[in-house]
Simulated scan of single mutants.
Amino acid sequence: MHKATAYHDALGDHFAERAQTSPYNAYTDRPAMLGLAGEVSGARILDVGCGAGHYAAELLARGARVAGIDGSATLLRHARARVNGDAELRLHDLEEPLGFAADGSFDGVVCALVYEHVRNRVQLLSELRRVLRPGGWLLVSTTHPTADWRHFGGSYFSHDWRDLPLGDSELSIHYQRMPLETFLGELLAAGFVLEQLIEPRPTADLREIDEAAYDKLHRTPSFLAVKLRRP
């Protein structure tokens, strides 16, 4: 992410702790994205906006070789502790080209809940296509457009940048609303082929821990996740 939208300092620490057990992160988006990734043993994967390293750690546990980038030094500190030196992690502004990566050097890319924070998404997608080998896959998850519409109101087709408060804290995240046609349209225009689209629901484990959250997330969509292929 850009320095203006990355999760710095207290926000980074708050997110790192919350993402460990949150119904949204730990029981909904993360299992969905890992399910879309499928078998990853031996694959070289780029984790774009790797955050506190939760996805990287899971991919490593499944046998992948992982490189991660994030615009927040705070989150990278958490990620480095989580992966214990087993992944290549670097501070990188997602508004800048991926100059550290050679053409076709990755088998897969994970971009979990970061796409909506990026302004120059055309450049980012072009770079992701470049660093993926032919036939490589791209996973992207984002806030469900209807979730934003329910929360913020106004037009469903809004492209406004908004600040979303995090629970009872004084912290918030800054990102851009976008309708489904924008989200998918940008990915397809970048030359990727859509393989699968899901609207993740929480895993059954959440019911034992927080039945209210489980029921809510099975009634109202929170995220969209897609798997695309580089031709």
Rank of each mutant, 00 (worst) to 15 (best):
A225M: 08
P179Q: 07
A57Q: 13
A79G: 04
D168A: 14
G136K: 00
F152K: 05
L217H: 12
A64N: 03
E39Y: 02
L76V: 05
G167I: 01
H159L: 14
L171G: 04
R80K: 12
E211V: 10
E195K: 13
L166M: 14
E181S: 11
D148T: 05
H2Y: 08
Q176T: 01
W161C: 01
R177A: 03
A212C: 01
E95R: 15
E181N: 10
L188G: 00
G153W: 14
R121F: 00
W137D: 06
L89P: 00
R229V: 15
L206K: 12
V140I: 15
D93Y: 13
L124C: 07
D168V: 03
P23W: 12
L59V: 01
G99T: 14
D70K: 15
A81D: 13
A32I: 09
Y115N: 04
L34G: 06
D86A: 15
S41I: 01
L132K: 04
V114D: 04
L139S: 02
R90C: 07
K227V: 03
A32M: 10
H78E: 07
W137Q: 10
F157W: 14
P97Q: 11
E195T: 01
L166H: 11
R119N: 00
T21A: 12
I209T: 02
A87M: 08
R133S: 05
D29Q: 13
D205K: 08
E95H: 12
L132V: 07
E88L: 14
L166K: 09
Y27P: 04
Y27D: 02
A225I: 05
W161I: 12
K3R: 13
Q20S: 11
Y115F: 15
N84Y: 01
A225W: 04
